[in-house]
Write a protein that binds this DNA or RNA. Structure first.
Lengths: 344, 344
DNA sequence: AGCGCGTCTGAAAGCGCTTGCAGAATGCGC
DNA sequence: GCGCATTCTGCAAGCGCTTTCAGACGCGCT
């Protein structure tokens, strides 16, 4: 109704009987201003509940205090953990975060980058696995390149390296390999893997690291041992059901993601298979809640918040001299109650 | 390095040999433009990888396709569920979401509103319990009022009504009361409540609903039965430890939040108290993961995503004729394995 | 008292885009 | 072939703010 437009700097200046320039300077602390004038401006501003128009500021050359973050799904605890780190660093630096959730739709992802570009976000963070898809990569590059050429920062968590940007990489391959080694040491020889869609780089890396390490110890993983499913709790649940219909008789299941492992655990329980008594189960990520499962989940612990913090750091200190920087953060195998020696 | 400024509409226009106005009209589809001109503009734009400067657009009068969402903690699954709904609706409407995480700091919350105001976000959503604090309420109102006067939409999930804004309210009181009734019916008479800080309206409502219902059935809840702790998993964990040191001997524990209940469950297990054998446990929210706990958690199920969707709807269809609208969404008691009749 | 210097303040020029307005171009009927 | 109605197109005025530049002012000095 009384959609009276926003209070402008000009009104403040008029009300304080100073010039626009002076008002601006007071509010930004750019230059010294005689104290009585400053006083007048400050009180006029607060009286009118003035807030600068960020768009005008941005247009006029002031830098833009917003960064964009694109993830697959805000409600996935893996992402949530990373986002937490991102938010903290952003908050500490007075940055506003624009968060977009793509629900794993590659088109949306590109579209969001475009919007962020329009917003002249000072940085864009891509979080979560990239897609192994030529077409997508090109479309993404077509947005990202002009963005960076225009001075935008890009940082990425856990992506394919073919996007030549600053990257924070959890060591998926190595982590999965270390997990495989630990599982072998427990005595397991027959494994099943619950994998997400192979189009995701993360899945590939973890799966590859795991099976290579197995192979190095003379244990082959066949296609039959690998169940592909959605990258979610329900995906894990369904994957176990699928697995149980197959001929394979694993003694240990590796879900490439904790979230999938959670679903798997429930499916196993409902099938009357005790964990770890009859079947060991391991995940990856060390999402907070897996500690509270029964049994607590063996997994590869990733410093989720730190991943986010580092990515944000890279984006902020965007001193991209030349090469794109890659920061590798290792995971650590954490053996908990969900794994044990196989029933002999 | 080659921080060449962004491509502007003017360059596009020049490259297409048309006027600025025409280029603008082509790109916005405002008016019909002769097809050959349109053609030239379109191809020039794509060749130059042009993206309009959203700030300039906003300044020049075009409306702003961004909304702000403020929550306590992105990594809390309760919020994550709501955010999911918000994101979906936002995405469907071509809106960019700016998400801020306050980590429960009231000052930050106000500060973020101010930033969002500066961004001229077309709507601001406040998610999560408000603070029962006069000073905070005033500070908040001081930001929100001018914002709305300037045409901004505000919607809120689960807040105190004293902020006169469109609200989506989960029925905390009623849900807690219904839960109390169900628990009484199971035969419980001695309860403990793990509560979050009383400064949060949500805590008050749930606690109030629960204890009032108990009282209506002749069961009194004393201060000793209530343990106050942080609103987190660790808070729940600590609260159980505290509870165990007290004289009370409850047969049933109500954690006002699923997240707290998760911590509580682990603490109980570690204390060697079986659930539900020796102690029943109930939560509130029905966060996805509680189904996968052992035992699965009895709780009051809230339609989390819908809460978010509705809030976003309210904000978008901001037809605030006069009164602020309040949408109440009921919760539903879901009895799962974590509750049983008390050991007689 | 007069001069030079340093510090403040204000006028004005954009930042990139939208849009009202007026002039150009097109098509039609006669 | 001419006049008029009907589209299109281009000019130019802002949107609200920052910032350069030059003028105004006050000071200490000679």
């Amino acid at each position: 109704m009384n959609a009276r437009p926003h209070v402008t700097l000009e009104e403040v200046a008029r009300s304080a009987r100073v010039s626009l320039a002076t008002a601006s300077r007071v509010l930004n602390g750019t230059t010294n201003v005689r104290s009585d004038l400053r006083e007048r401006v400050v009180s006029a501003a607060s009286e009118l509940a003035y807030t600068p128009n960020a768009h005008a500021q941005a247009l006029a050359g002031g830098s833009q205090p917003t960064v964009g973050v694109i993830c697959h799904d805000v409600s996935d605890p893996y992402f949530a953990g990373i986002a937490r780190g991102v938010m903290r660093v952003a908050g500490d630096n007075g940055l506003l975060v624009m968060l977009a959730s793509t629900f794993r739709d590659p088109h949306k992802e590109v579209a969001y980058v475009s919007m962020l570009r329009a917003q002249r976000a000072s940085a864009i963070l891509l979080i979560g696995s990239g897609f192994e898809d030529k077409g997508w990569e090109q479309a993404m590059a077509a947005e990202l390149d002009p963005y960076r050429r225009g001075g935008g920062q890009v940082a990425v968590v856990s992506r394919h390296r073919s996007l030549k940007v600053d990257t924070v990489q959890p060591e998926n391959r190595e982590g999965a390999a270390a997990l495989a080694k630990a599982l072998l040491k427990l005595g397991h020889r027959r494994f099943a893997v619950l994998a997400g869609p192979r189009a995701l780089t993360t899945v590939n890396d973890r799966l590859g690291g795991f099976s290579d390490e197995l192979a190095a110890h003379g244990v082959e993983l066949t296609e039959d041992d690998i169940v592909e499913a959605a990258f979610t709790r329900d995906g894990g649940y369904a994957a176990v059901q699928e697995m149980l219909t197959r001929q394979t008789e694993p003694t240990c299941v590796f879900a490439v993601t904790d979230v999938m492992a959670i679903g798997a655990l429930t499916a196993l329980r409902e099938a009357g298979i005790s964990v770890p008594g009859e079947m060991s189960l391991a995940g990856f990520d060390d999402v907070p809640v897996v500690r509270d499962l029964t049994p607590p989940l063996t997994t590869v612990s990733l410093p989720l918040e730190e991943l986010g913090e580092r990515a944000m750091d890279l984006a902020i200190k965007g001193a991209r001299g030349g090469r794109s920087r890659i920061l590798r953060l290792p995971g650590e195998v954490v053996l908990r109650g969900s794994t044990a020696a196989p029933k002999s």
